[in-house]
């Protein structure tokens, strides 16, 4: 599905990613953990074309996307959420999801009430229902509380039915109850039928959703395997003890 080979990226002499290799198989759900500044979000940014790679290759289903534009990459079936939420604050909740369909093939710019457009709008409503925002779909998105904004981002990422879903701290800033709800939502609704990479500090959510765990430190991969085994490794514990606590 996704193959990353020798990927490097540095910012002003500081290496954020260094010769990173990572292969994700079809249908796999990979958790990505590591201390702050270990390069997790940078990896997402390089995959989605926000930052260019200094060297290395990113291959999505035999197609090299290393030099593609952010828009092109999205159209190939990668969708993501953001660690520091990015939503259109001046648009309603429903519009925030609806706008993500604009670049889907066959979507006209003016198609007001064709059958296809009605079906797409129904799909938006279905997703909002699923993430629990149906009753607030006409509210301006900027006025939602933070956990709901994260749910909104998830719905927006899912509306394109992406083959690969990148979730960047989907439970960031949430209480334990909200985190558990989000974990269930990801496990039962977002993940089935697609490949997924989840960045998260909260190990509860990781163990609930991911079949595989990958640890980054200083832009390098220091562990990769089944969650139970990885968390026993000495260098993983050290990376965490030297940095932030895993549940920070």
């Amino acid at each position: 599905m996704l193959r990353i080979e020798g990927l490097s990226r540095s910012f002003g002499g500081v290496a954020a990613l260094e010769a990173l290799d990572l292969a994700v198989a079809d249908g796999e759900v990979v958790g990505l953990i590591g201390p702050n500044g270990s390069g997790k979000t940078t990896l997402f940014n390089v995959i989605t074309g926000v930052h260019a790679a200094d060297s290395g290759r990113i291959v999505l289903r035999d197609r090299d996307i290393t030099r593609s534009t952010p828009a092109g990459i999205v159209r190939l079936g990668i969708a993501r959420t953001f660690q520091n939420l990015r939503i259109y604050q001046r648009m309603s909740v429903r519009e925030n999801v609806w706008v993500a369909q604009h670049s889907l093939p066959g979507v006209g710019l003016l198609s007001g009430s064709s059958a296809a457009e009605r079906a797409r709008r129904a799909e938006v409503d279905r997703l909002l229902e699923a993430v629990g925002l149906a009753d607030r779909r006409e509210v301006l998105a900027g006025s939602l509380p933070l956990p709901d904004q994260r749910r909104l981002e998830l719905a927006r990422a899912l509306v394109r039915s992406p083959a690969l879903l990148l979730l960047d701290e989907p439970a960031g800033g949430m209480t334990p109850t909200e985190t558990a709800e989000m974990a269930a939502l990801i496990r039962d609704f977002a993940v089935p039928g697609r490949t997924c990479i989840v960045i998260e500090h909260k190990l509860d959510l990781i163990s609930e959703t991911c079949g595989r765990l990958c640890v980054l430190n200083f832009g390098r991969k220091i562990a990769d395997g089944a969650p139970g085994e990885v968390l026993q490794q000495a260098d993983v514990l050290e990376a965490y003890l030297g940095g932030d606590a895993p549940d920070a």
């Binding site: 989605t48 952010p70 828009a71 092109g72 889907l104």
Partner: peptide
């Protein structure tokens, strides 16, 4: 930037 990441040029 976010708009670019909805697949729009």
């Amino acid at each position: 930037m976010l708009t670019e990441m909805q697949g729009l040029n």
